[in-house]
């Protein structure tokens, strides 16, 4: 490959060569391996694995919970982003750092911490259990863990857009007689919409693949609270490589579709800005 325009800066073929070689060795070739292996099963073999009730239940649970968690993240993420961009309050810098906690805290640590909090005798669980709300070891726990790990995606995607939103537009809306709620819902939210959707999709993609923080809190009962990544591991432990590959391929296809959607959205946002 050749640089399109002339530049005196050296190192194009070296750096691009290293980049592409490393990318192929670590990511592309191994990933292609899954699809080759899955293709080897044939459509019928794939269908047989994926249509098994236990697999279907796990995929449904994974995507259903991830969808709910991403929705919760969209709501609370927007709220948090709004408060941090628009208002001043003491301890703001400290709280701002905690938003990134789910990025930095290892998932296994988050998993055991959430489980101990939401268990029947935990700090939060002891207040919920008397009302009949069981979180730990139920599908609800899965949603809690997925919300935990997805929150920063929404906040960090929405924040910069909200910060750059032009106040003049809001002033114009107000001067034309809109009340505050009308301004927010008809001027600000539409401007933030694409970023919010991107954050939602990122949180969704992360939640679908999440494993470490979930398996401790989920209870892992087949057909009830067994997520798809866990089922892959169970199949591997049973030496059912074909089954594991089929589920992995299905998950990859769905997450790549999500990734394409995210990229499309970001391109759309960039175009509208320009």
């Amino acid at each position: 490959m050749r640089a399109r325009t002339f530049t005196p800066i050296p190192g194009f073929s070296l750096t691009l060569g290293v980049t592409i070689t490393y990318l192929c060795l670590i990511v592309l070739i191994p990933l292609a391996g899954v699809f080759f292996k899955a293709a080897g099963l044939g459509l019928e073999g794939l269908w047989n694995t994926l249509s098994a009730p236990r697999v279907l239940a796990s995929l449904e649970l994974t995507f259903g919970s991830a969808l709910i968690a991403a929705c919760a993240n969209a709501v609370f993420g927007l709220l948090v982003a709004w408060v941090f961009v628009r208002y001043e309050f003491p301890g703001k810098r400290l709280f701002d750092s905690t938003i990134d906690l789910p990025f930095a805290l290892p998932t296994a640590v988050a998993g055991i911490a959430l489980t101990s909090l939401y268990a029947g005798n935990g700090w939060i669980g002891q207040f919920l259990e008397p009302h009949g709300i069981k979180v730990a070891y139920t599908p609800l726990g899965i949603i809690v863990a997925m919300t935990f790990i997805g929150l920063p995606f929404v906040v960090r995607t929405v924040e910069p857009v909200l910060r750059e939103a032009e106040k003049e537009l809001e002033e114009a809306a107000a001067s034309l007689g809109a009340n505050r709620w009308q301004t927010v819902s008809r001027v600000i939210l539409p401007a933030v919409g694409p970023a919010l959707l991107t954050g939602f999709a990122l949180a969704l993609a992360r939640a679908v693949g999440e494993y470490g923080s979930i398996i401790f809190i989920a209870g892992n009962i087949p057909m009830v609270s067994e997520i798809a990544p866990l089922l892959i591991i169970i199949k591997l432990e049973e030496f059912d490589y074909a089954g594991a590959t089929a589920i992995a391929a299905a998950m990859l296809v769905i997450s790549f579709t999500l990734l394409l959607a995210i990229n499309g959205l970001q391109a759309y946002v960039r175009r509208r800005k320009a």
Partner: peptide, 12 residues
Amino acid sequence: SVSPVVAGLIYV
């Protein structure tokens, strides 16, 4: 966007 479990699986 690849699940960590799938990331391990590809090497297996």
